[in-house]
């Protein structure tokens, strides 16, 4: 990939789609890149459909709103349905096959189906599907270094509650595991 990429991360409220986007954005700042994060959510506090759109670029990002994304990460079936048409031709879509059994509809994009929820069971608990997906995304696109995200996680752990900070090792394991799904070809890429 070149130094200019857009990604939509979508799921139901509580899956951490928005947070995955924020991690990505922070990591882009660490690497001195231009970036924008723009969320969209329903009126509900929990359980509604949420998504965010992240742009990462070597240049100024004029519009936080995009027509089509290079990559879509769909953490559930509703997200797959809503955003399958929003992937640029030649781009790809990561689908959480644990929660989506929908048929794919396009031939001009690639699909990476990962049973995120099942795989998450194998890790120290709690494990996070959003972070695993992020690891896979970064390994596939190489748009930012995994290390940058880890740095962000470590910085964040210093400012959050002790309860949340205690989950740092889980997050670090999830992101590495996500990357290994791609590098070790645990799924069809």
């Amino acid at each position: 990939m070149n130094g200019d990429l857009s990604v939509i991360i979508s799921g139901f409220g509580g899956q951490g789609a928005l947070f995955a986007g924020i991690l990505l954005c922070h990591a882009a700042v660490v690497e001195g890149k231009h970036t924008t994060w723009f969320p969209s959510y329903g009126a509900e506090m929990r359980g509604g459909a949420v998504n965010c759109c992240v742009n990462i670029s070597d240049y100024d990002v004029p519009s936080p709103i995009i027509d089509k994304a290079d990559v879509v990460i769909a953490l559930n079936d509703a997200s797959q349905e809503k955003f399958e048409s929003k992937v640029k031709s030649g781009g790809f879509m990561i689908i959480n096959s644990s929660l989506s059994h929908l048929q794919t509809k396009r031939t001009d994009i690639n699909y990476i189906k990962i049973p995120l929820n099942e795989l998450a069971q194998k890790l120290i608990q709690p494990a996070f599907v959003n972070v695993i997906a992020l690891g896979a995304f970064l390994e596939k696109t190489k748009i930012l270094k995994i290390e940058s995200v880890k740095q962000v996680m470590k910085e964040m752990a210093k400012t959050v509650s002790a309860k949340k900070a205690a989950l740092l090792p889980n997050n670090l394991e999830c992101i590495d595991f996500g990357a290994s799904i791609i590098s070790q070809r645990m799924v069809t890429v």
């Binding site: 954005c25 700042v29 723009f38 969320p39 936080p64 709103i65």
Partner: peptide, 9 residues
């Protein structure tokens, strides 16, 4: 709402 809700450096 776009500017209020979006993040950027």
């Amino acid at each position: 709402g776009v500017l209020g809700q979006m993040m950027e450096p």
